[in-house]
């Protein structure tokens, strides 16, 4: 599935129009933990929300992708995902820095960013809101709850929420 998405992104420069229309459901999941990612994707999948989901494993990759840098230099920056699910604790560039870059660039500023944290104890929760986070979700330990939370989250941002344009 990851492969599928990555290929999808890699081809984005050529199939831009298609991608734009396809990307109506685009979800960018930035999560360093494969297990968490799997759980999240599984939950979203249950509601058919994970068809166009891109999973990136750290902040650096996320920034490269979002700003069409590095391996993603051929990408159109304006081709933004519908929602970014951003983990905070990540190697290299952490979620907060990614959030800061996203929200300080006019091209990406409008992308809804929901912070997925393992803990409500995160000291950066307030800072995240200051930086412009659109939501802050604590991943429950209990699978059912987790499942519920992620599903609702996906449904809301992908279906309920009306983005600008």
């Amino acid at each position: 599935m990851k492969q599928e998405n990555e290929i999808l992104v890699a081809e984005s420069t050529e199939t831009e129009l298609l991608l734009v229309t396809d990307n109506d459901n685009d979800i960018l999941l930035v999560e360093d933990n494969d297990g968490d990612a799997e759980m999240t994707i599984r939950a979203l999948k249950k509601h058919n929300l994970a068809n166009h989901l891109l999973h990136l494993k750290d902040g650096a990759q996320a920034l490269d992708f979002l700003f069409a840098e590095g391996g993603y230099s051929g990408r159109q920056v304006e081709n933004t995902p519908k929602i970014i699910l951003l983990d905070l604790k990540m190697p290299k560039v952490n979620g907060k820095e990614v959030l800061k870059r996203i929200k300080s660039d006019p091209r990406t500023r409008k992308i809804p960013v929901v912070i997925l944290s393992s803990s409500k104890e995160d000291p950066d929760i307030e800072q995240c809101y200051d930086l412009g986070a659109n939501g802050y979700v604590v991943k429950p330990v209990e699978f059912d709850l987790f499942h519920k939370v992620v599903s609702e989250l996906g449904l809301f941002w992908m279906i309920v929420n009306q983005p600008p344009q």
């Binding site: 933990n33 297990g35 968490d36 759980m39 604790k89 944290s117 393992s118 803990s119 409500k120 104890e121 995160d122 991943k139 429950p140 330990v141 209990e142 699978f143 987790f146």
Partner: peptide
């Protein structure tokens, strides 16, 4: 909270 909960989860 973060690291313990994640594997537990």
């Amino acid at each position: 909270s973060h690291d313990l909960r994640t594997p537990l989860r």
